[in-house]
Design a protein around this nucleic acid. Structure first.
Lengths: 333, 333
DNA sequence: TTGTACGCGTTATCAC
DNA sequence: GTGATAACGCGTACAA
């Protein structure tokens, strides 16, 4: 079943069928109706492979993410897919894990599939060493690269980020201004976003005349049990803290578990702030005050920017979206 | 950069280049090396669109799911993608929502993209009325349809399901045997899986000589706040229950919140069992005993079955995977 | 307004 | 072991 069958049954040429198919106005109403009728009768569907070959596009975008089962990334992928589809683009998903070699391998794989663009979802795709990002910058010569919550400078590379630094600055400041003096900072990675968050925390302490001490900044696997255990052990080692600020909700959940386990009252004795405002923040008792990093806005903006790139509009290479602090029961403000 | 360029530079015909590309043994070692060298020098990558047109496949599978941000489905999609990719297949994601018309529309869309198979992830794709599933059964004449945790009978349709009925039967039985007499059943939908779960609950009561009463079976939006509020209102209306069995972890989280809010002691006064053993079950205090529906096994089995279908092996049209009860702190066994 | 003919880059079927 | 050539199905100049 192809365009020739349709043309034959309708008694017109394939060019006319193609015109009808693509809404070309240079077809008489009568012919159009005849062709549409035949298409319907034959149950004709254009062959996307042939179309792709001719136009050199299948209207498909590659989405890379380290782990789509992570609540934050799962949401991002959901919004990206929905948004892309509303623009008639398909999304090929590719979960890469965290290994640089694997990321590069999958990146090349997607390129070989001739996707129209690659979206790197999450902050795990920008490496510390510049040379490790060269493969992205090089590829951008051939197709647009979109970063969701990551920043990389380069021609044809577009970043949409949440203002993590400001978000953390604000959160830490509110903690300080509500009387907290010893804020423990818990983070899980040194990504672009991770570093910004930490800077926000440090800046807030500085601005308020507090000193930043290394033992109040702790790295922890992004896992609630790991976070709980780390806090338990720090507490037993005698570390004093009256607030925990975390780079991810899962770490904050661990903090709530720690407090509940030790009979520490929240927020009277300990305040806790999470990040991402995911489902997790609403699971615990008390529910967690969390920074909303605006995933949906981040994703739709990314897709809108990409559509701008496709249509040749001049779009910003970097868009920053402000976050919100969602106040719940783990803080006293 | 195409096969002609390579053939020209290597001084061979395109047929030979194609043979080298596809590992055809009828090429002399010398020629092969020469061609490979040229390919490397020119940075040649075969055009997947052209290949797709010729072979009528792009090695792509469509994955449909109602909402990929749901923790359970997000995990499923992760495992499906990973497993498909390990077999050199791409995954096109399509989030459909819950509306039947939309599901049908996207189903046809994926078919028009000529994917090699469609995976329906989650139990939301089998409708109560048989005629509403006709579109799936019809499509199966042309491509394999795989259901993950849903069952539909039909030629070229393959289902991989968790034994929800047995899982619920076991969970309810354990509650009864540990002294519970009034088990409230909370569910969110009438899907294939949803009905099986409910049957398991009812069967367990019957087997243990307890009567099933309608007011102990409550439907609730799949949302923890909705669940908490429903239980609060039931409680205040005077309904007595000593256990809550739920069709989803989010409902169980709501039950924990309800108990914590009312000062009801878990598990002494109230036992709670969730479903899916998702992240959510580990967020609360106390952590929730939950039925592990074995998503990973479900997904890898689905993909393995699909590969069997592709290779013409005789595969079962239905595979059932046993679940596990993961005991935590909301039950006293 | 409509039709012809070619290009897109493969794979596969022949001949040699 | 290798090469010429025909599909594959569409879009689109260009011609009519």
């Amino acid at each position: 079943m192809n365009i020739y069958d349709v043309s034959e049954h309708a008694g017109v040429s394939i060019a006319t069928v193609s015109r009808v198919l693509n809404g070309n106005p240079n077809v008489s109403e009568k012919t159009r109706e005849k062709v549409l009728k035949v298409m319907d009768e034959l149950g004709y569907t254009p062959n996307v492979f042939a179309r792709g070959l001719g136009l050199d596009t299948m209207q498909t975008i590659g989405i890379m993410c380290s782990d789509s089962s992570d609540p934050y990334l799962a949401e991002a992928i959901y919004y990206l897919e929905r948004s892309l589809r509303s623009h008639d683009y398909d999304a090929i998903l590719c979960c890469t894990g965290y290994d640089l070699d694997a990321k590069q391998k999958y990146f090349e794989l997607l390129r070989s599939k001739r996707v129209d663009a690659i979206i790197l979802a999450g902050s795990k795709f920008v490496e510390m060493r510049a040379k490790d990002n060269a493969y992205i910058i090089d590829a951008a010569a051939e197709l647009p690269i979109m970063l969701v919550n990551g920043y990389l400078e380069g021609e044809n590379i577009y970043s949409t980020v949440c203002d993590d630094r400001a978000a953390m600055y604000q959160a830490a400041s509110q903690l300080i201004e509500s009387g907290h003096k010893r804020i423990l900072y818990l983070y899980s990675s040194y990504s672009y976003s991770g570093l910004n968050k930490m800077d926000g925390y440090k800046d807030a302490l500085h601005s308020h005349g507090l000193s930043v001490s290394d033992n109040m900044i702790c790295q922890c696997t992004k896992d609630m049990e790991a976070s709980r255990d780390l806090l338990l052990s720090l507490h037993r080692q005698g570390l004093i803290f009256d607030a925990v600020l975390t780079s991810d909700d899962s770490l904050a959940v661990g903090a709530v578990k720690y407090a509940n386990a030790e009979g520490i009252s929240i927020p009277d004795e300990l305040s806790i702030i999470g990040y991402n405002n995911s489902l997790l923040a609403r699971c615990t008792d008390p529910e967690i005050t969390s920074i909303d990093s605006k995933v949906e806005a981040l994703c739709t903006t990314t897709v809108n920017t990409l559509m701008g790139v496709f249509s040749g509009v001049n779009v910003p290479s970097r868009t920053t979206i402000a976050s919100d602090l969602i106040k719940r029961k783990t803080t006293n403000f």
